[in-house]
Nucleic acid binder design. Sequence first.
RNA 1: GGUCCCUUCGUCUAUCGGUUAGGACACCAGAUUUUCAAUCUGGGAAGAGGGGUUCGACUCCCCUAGGGACUGCCA
Length: 451
Amino acid sequence: MMHIGTARTALFNWLYARHRGGKFLIRVEDTDRERSTPEAVEAIFEGMDWLGLAPDAEPIFQFSRAERHREVVMELLERGGAYRCYMSVEELAEEREKARAEGRPIRSPWRDRAPPAGMNQPFVVRLRAPIDGETVVNDLVKGEVSFRNRELDDLILLRADGSPTYNLAVVADDHDMGITHVIRGDDHLSNTPRQILIYQGMGWPLPAFGHLPMIHGPDGAKLSKRHGAQGVREFADMGYLPEAMRNYLARLGWGHGDDEIFTDGQAIAWFDIADVVGAPARMDWPKLNHLNQHYIRLADDKRLMGLVFEVLRSRDVHLPRDFADRLSRTIPLVKEGAKTVLELADLVMFALKPRPIELDAKARALFTGEVVGRIGRLAAALALAPVWKPAEMADTLKGFAENEGGFGKFGPALRAILAAGAVAPDLASALAALGREESLGRIDDALSQVQ
RNA sequence: GGUCCCUUCGUCUAUCGGUUAGGACACCAGAUUUUCAAUCUGGGAAGAGGGGUUCGACUCCCCUAGGGACUGCCA
């Protein structure tokens, strides 16, 4: 799964790279073999692809560079910037407990001790972090953040099994890949000084760092399943458009004056890390809906047809043979009111109902003798209508309503007929969407049931 | 416990020492009306608390409170 916070981080990186004319690179940090399954990796690519964030080079898999990472550790060892620590797991646990009680970081006794006599003892390699002074992170978002080195522990670079850890791998990869800007989640801010120490130990130049705040649920707590969604895939399934998602996510933690709705081009032109807000943001579904509605209106009808078709298929809706025609006539007439593609699918249902339509008891109750007469006269009037388009239908209905004493005299009944148990748009649009034959046919169906 | 980050309407944000603190979403009211929407008009709504600095603080500094991250041989 690709978390929504990850998606925004990716978006900001993408926007910034485009803004600066730089490159947007993807690296899969898969050093944890347990967690990074092929499915998990695929989900990330899928999410990026759906969001429309294409990298400028082939993705790099961190695990494949393990040999290089070990090489870096060896060099650091030679330079004296790291040391072998022979603490057992039990000893470590004990030290951790003690350190926490004393409110200090973990210390290894092997930092200043010669290796043990027996050469076969397992060990990890730890960074030899300085004790004095402080390490300053000049963060693009948070500003200058300084840490006293004595508060930093000697983090593990190489595990006992010889595999590199995340913090080491990240630094080595960022350096080798020529990364100039590290823009990542807030949760890495306290790792940064330790990573800087690795850069310094290797004599490597520092990239610029920028730490983005997290995205919380509407209640301010960490975003989780109970908030509706946390993965990009789920947003797609809920009927959100990727361009709406980009616009929404861009506004979460970043702003450009009063601009709310903007194109990718504008976002790229305006985006600057310096303008990113330092505080965490909450997920706001109504606002996402609003943006999505806007982008659905803008969306190409053919594309919406495809999306709606997928939804209908997943719902096992029975589709008439000419469903494509029906969809293409209906979608443009109802898409104004849809906040998601799922809603759009709901709004289109009335046009797919099979004939003969059936009126339920509530609908039948609308057909008093008078109403039956009016619907009959309306059918005759409609049969003469030359053009079945919303504006013309509206005129016809309006003229009819004037003669018959208002819409209230036949509107509800006509609605029941055209909607056939689903939700339908305004009557003129419904008639236009259904077309002459279907509309008149449904009226016949109805009249034969109430007479 | 320790270190670090964060705090403007309900929400996302604008403001970069001097504004009637602006916009958007949401909400409320009205208009429209053939259901539900959509649309249009109008409205209410904010600087966490306390100290400083300053002629003047939302804005700079300190403290407190609240929220969060890290504190893994996870990433």
